[in-house]
């Protein structure tokens, strides 16, 4: 059996609220294999985003271990983690976070440029824009795009970095149902074609049900659903 591309073992995270420590994550085990798609659901405030932040190395855990491609990165410093993320892990956010001053194509290319990938990022970003159905909107500024189009640009940007894993934090949260379905279809098919592992945090049952494995986060613990 192959070792997982991404794994969290016994992850714990506390937050201080006044004089009290609140234990948000109480020892979570989760793993993702190459090309696998898992979904995580849970109530608002249950710790879904915190779990994604721990898995992506944006936040440090209070306990447990995070493995990227078999390497324990729990003790890495911020800059080392940033370098390690290049070409390994991309994130897709609910609010897209595109750079407003540059056009859609340039936004997509940022994924590869920041990752410093040794590839022709111009042609790769153009290809990705065509694959997400925005071949006609290459030079449109983000402000002129619809919410669904912006999220597709954000997905193309995540893909452009050539990652092994994509962590998507409620990517359809700001979209209507039809557009949200199209975005998830696109994300799922692109990850499947490129053998990219996908972790999807969502409130939408239908989207969660598309995953190979479905998890529910409750009371600081992650439960696998049948």
């Amino acid at each position: 059996m192959n070792s997982p591309i991404l794994a969290g073992l016994g992850l714990r995270k506390n937050f201080r609220s006044g004089s009290k420590d609140i234990e948000v994550l109480k020892g979570i085990d989760v793993s993702l294999n190459e090309g696998e798609f898992i979904s995580i659901q849970g109530e608002s405030g249950s710790g879904k985003t915190t779990l994604l932040n721990l898995l992506s190395g944006l936040e440090t855990s209070d306990g447990g271990e995070i493995n990227w491609a078999g390497e324990n990165v729990s003790k890495f410093k911020i800059n080392s983690l940033a370098r390690k993320r290049r070409g390994f892990l991309s994130l897709v956010f609910q609010s897209y976070y595109l750079v407003p001053e540059i056009d859609a194509l340039a936004n997509v290319a940022m994924g590869a440029r920041i990752a410093g990938l040794d590839l022709d990022w111009r042609s790769r970003s153009k290809t990705l824009m065509e694959r997400v159905g925005l071949g006609e909107r290459l030079h449109s500024l983000p402000s002129t795009l619809s919410g669904g189009e912006r999220q597709r640009v954000a997905i193309a940007r995540a893909m452009c970095a050539n990652p092994k894993v994509i962590l998507a934090d409620e990517p359809t949260g700001n979209l209507d149902e039809g557009t949200g379905d199209a975005v998830i279809d696109l994300l799922r098919s692109l990850c499947s074609e490129e053998k990219i592992g996908l972790v999807l945090v969502t409130h939408n049952n239908a989207h969660a049900s598309m995953a190979d494995s479905k998890y529910h986060l409750k009371d600081g613990l992650l439960h696998k659903e049948a």
Partner: peptide, 10 residues
């Protein structure tokens, strides 16, 4: 924050 999540160093 997004740049950092994409691999940008400080």
């Amino acid at each position: 924050g997004v740049f950092s999540s994409m691999g940008a160093t400080a």
